[in-house]
């Protein structure tokens, strides 16, 4: 039993375009251990978002291997992938991706419906998490009635509802002003201290500096992988 949560070997992904196959990822290998806080950086088009979608079991690679908790993800069927997304992985999007028609409480509780949790427990757990992200008083508001930073907090609460040990975030601060971004990053750091493995994609260096490890993508490949400088200077 290894300590690796994510083990990527020789992973590649290409898209069919009118100009032929476009390689978004070229033979990427990476291992992320339990409890790590990793920032994946790189300019747009470097393949970091594609990489994240594959990590989140939303997209499938065209080559190589992806092991999540020592399971070969490529061998799993659609329902098993759905189960992974529901129970094992929490995913936070740049655009929040809340359902606009539902109250914040229902949005946070939604993954529990697919997990088959009863109504009373659903709302209780959703309340707990909304309290945790400081939005308990807005439980019955709709997403368009709150600010972007608050929406992202709700999205994080939703990602955490099934108590995953792995949290993936794709540009979570991309739509937020820098002050709110720092708040969100503080929340991530807090969660990481509680033992949740966090991988987030960003192109902003100061956001990435909250992470303990920085992986840099360029043109579909990893060009650097090192611990964050601040950590080296205690």
């Amino acid at each position: 039993m290894s300590d690796a949560v994510i083990r990527i070997m020789d992973l590649s992904k290409s898209y069919a375009t009118s100009a032929g196959l476009f390689p978004a990822l070229k033979n990427v290998s990476l291992t992320i251990n339990r409890g790590e806080f990793v920032a994946i950086m790189g300019p747009s088009g470097s393949g970091k978002s594609t990489f994240m979608n594959i990590l989140g079991c939303l997209d499938a690679p065209t080559g190589g291997q992806y092991q999540l908790n020592n399971r070969q993800v490529s061998e799993l069927g659609r329902d098993e992938l759905a189960l992974l997304r529901n129970q094992t992985i929490g995913f936070v999007f740049q655009g929040f991706n809340l359902l606009q028609r539902m109250t914040l409480l229902d949005n946070v509780a939604l993954p529990l419906i697919y997990a088959g949790v009863e109504h009373a427990e659903r709302s209780q757990r959703a309340h707990e998490l909304l309290t945790r992200v400081g939005l308990a008083d807005k439980a019955n508001s709709l997403p368009n009635q709150i600010s972007g930073g608050q929406q992202q907090r709700v999205a994080i609460a939703r990602a955490l509802i099934n108590r995953p040990r792995l949290l993936l975030a794709d540009e979570p601060t991309g739509n937020l002003d820098s002050h709110t971004g720092v708040e969100i990053m503080a929340l991530f750091s807090e969660l990481n201290l509680e033992g949740i493995t966090i991988v987030l994609v960003t192109h902003e260096a100061d956001i990435a500096s909250h992470a303990k490890r920085q992986v840099r993508f360029y043109d579909g490949s990893i060009i650097s992988d090192h611990a964050t400088a601040q950590e080296l200077q205690p």
């Binding site: 189960l83 995913f91 993954p111 697919y114 990602a159």
Partner: peptide
């Protein structure tokens, strides 16, 4: 897409 991302299966 959002529902699938948070764990909805085909049958859901």
């Amino acid at each position: 897409g959002i529902r699938m991302a948070i764990g909805a299966r085909e049958r859901d």
